[in-house]
Amino acid sequence: MTDWRDRIFCEDALAGLARIPDAAVDLIIADPPYGLGKDYGNDSDKMDADAYLEWMEQWVDAALPKLKANGSLYIFLTWRYSPEVFVMLKKRMTMVNEIIWDRRVPSMGGSTRRFSSVHDTVGFFAKAKDYYFDLDAIRIPYDAVTKKARSRSIFVGAKWLELGYNPKDVWSVSRLHREHKERADHPTQKPLEIIERMLKASCPPDGVVLDPFMGSGTTAVAAKRCGRHFVGFELNTEYCELIAQRLAALDVNDVEAATVLVDQVKSVPEEI
């Protein structure tokens, strides 16, 4: 199949990954079910621990061959399973970072028998030592006060001062509340700010990102906004239509393109 880029296939990733040639994508961004019993319109998040970890290994082994030699993987996890999944992945790739996503959850009650969980764990893995990484694309600019404080001659012309600093491994980005303008009808939607940072850092311009669990389609939206190509899979047909609508909304004046996107998603199950 040659027209697999810039498409969302409404099917199980394990069944559909064969559509993608090996060594064809630059980056994988994976936000699999966490094994916590969330409702995604199916039973995909209702496995016991052993079955969940076995399934994680299955899709990882199916997805990794699709990466180019200098490709990378970001994977969202819960603290409950990140240790086991990290060990499994470290047998296959090089671990670059453990990133903590601080969801900025307000302090409003919570468990009285443990500390409140307010973060997601993200693993950043690379296929080889020469993995693609564009730090300059994601530097965070210094404010004017900081720049003024670094006005001594030894700082003049310093690249890091002009372009900004390297993002740390704790990313404090608010979760998407129901009233947030970016929010779609999906229980675990990730913010564009996070996905776009991953794309700009680890997928070259005009490169391809694979998302095996598209959900609300944030990876596809981010890719289109950042000048990258995408491909992904999603089991829930309603989410497939949601993705098409979000992509079409990026260019609300292109009515014809919007229709094609929705029809394309709806027609996929018939092609399988």
Rank of each mutant, 00 (worst) to 15 (best):
I29E: 00
R114V: 09
V265E: 03
K200R: 15
I75W: 02
T78R: 03
L161C: 10
G35C: 05
L261G: 01
K46V: 06
A30H: 02
R19T: 04
M88K: 07
K159L: 08
I99T: 00
E182A: 09
I28L: 06
F233K: 09
A257K: 15
Y81N: 14
G217V: 11
E11H: 05
R114S: 10
P32Q: 09
H229T: 02
R114I: 08
V122I: 15
L27A: 03
A223E: 02
D143W: 08
F115N: 03
E57M: 10
M47H: 12
N236V: 05
Q264M: 10
H229A: 02
H180V: 02
R19V: 10
D26W: 04
L14M: 06
R92S: 05
Q189Y: 04
C203G: 03
P187I: 03
E270R: 15
T218H: 01
T146N: 13
R225Y: 07
G123I: 01
E271C: 14
R103Y: 02
C10I: 12
S116C: 07
I138G: 02
A69M: 11
T78C: 05
P106D: 00
D50E: 15
R104S: 10
K190L: 02
W59E: 03
A144T: 13
P269W: 12
D45R: 05
H119P: 04
L163H: 15
I75E: 03
M198C: 14
D136Q: 11
A18V: 13
V173T: 10
L14Q: 07
F115G: 08
L89P: 11
V173W: 09
R104E: 07
S153L: 13
K159P: 12
D251Y: 14
A137M: 02
K200E: 11
A18P: 09
W160F: 15
D39N: 13
L261Y: 08
K68P: 09
A69F: 14
G109A: 02
T188I: 06
L77G: 05
S117P: 11
P32D: 05
V231I: 11
G110L: 01
N42E: 05
A126E: 07
C226A: 10
D22A: 06
E11G: 08
G215R: 06
Q264H: 09
D211Q: 00
M47P: 10
V145Q: 12
V260S: 13
A24S: 12
I194L: 06
I75M: 04
G109M: 03
S174A: 14
D12E: 04
V156S: 15
R175Y: 13
P33D: 06
P83S: 07
D102G: 10
G37R: 11
D185M: 08
I8S: 00
S82T: 07
